[in-house]
């Protein structure tokens, strides 16, 4: 077992543990912290795969910006411990079976996958980020701009809500 495999298992355990903890915790701040653990662990896995730019963006954007906003809002609203309610009927009859089916299908696909496992660095980072940017601004320029407009609309909505007199 080489260092990369060991690192992968540590990171995967951190990501899974964080994800379970996110649901299990009752306090929003603890849940948010667990989500940050998941994101940082994912960034580590991207690094192992040689996707350095993606790893950096993952930490800067998700862990560093979006989750800071989450924590900020939770602090600002002074949200307390969540109340446990009985699980809803729809969740029992629809959610649980579909969850089980999804897990089985995904596990089956992964276990019997013929695609070779892709590991290890070896990608020229500068070229990779240049190609990524070129693709974003040529082939995928329409979805890219559409996403920007979507985010802009969301910001405008937030501003309108904040300015409204209650």
């Amino acid at each position: 077992m080489n260092v990369e495999t060991i690192l992968f298992f540590i990171l995967a355990a951190a990501a899974l543990g964080g994800a379970v903890n996110l649901i299990a915790q009752t306090h929003p701040i603890h849940s948010a912290l667990s989500l940050i653990v998941v994101m940082v662990a994912l960034a580590g896995i991207y690094l192992l795969l040689g996707a350095e730019l993606l790893a950096a963006v993952q930490i800067i954007v998700y862990a560093g910006a979006i989750m800071v906003l989450f924590v900020f809002i939770i602090m600002l609203l002074n949200a307390g411990v969540e109340e446990r309610t009985a699980i809803s009927r729809a969740a029992t009859w629809v959610g649980l079976p579909f969850g089980v089916i999804l897990t089985v299908v995904l596990g089956w696909r992964i276990a019997f996958s013929q695609a070779p496992a892709h590991t290890g660095p070896g990608v020229d980072m500068v070229r990779a980020s240049r190609e990524l940017s070129q693709m974003l601004f040529t082939s995928y320029v329409f979805p890219f701009e559409l996403t920007s407009i979507l985010i802009l609309v969301a910001i405008l909505g937030a501003v309108v809500l904040a300015k409204r007199d209650f």
């Binding site: 950096a56 963006v57 800067i60 862990a63 560093g64």
Partner: peptide, 10 residues
Amino acid sequence: LLVVFAITAL
């Protein structure tokens, strides 16, 4: 450079 900004962001 990106690593520096990632750590600063955290």
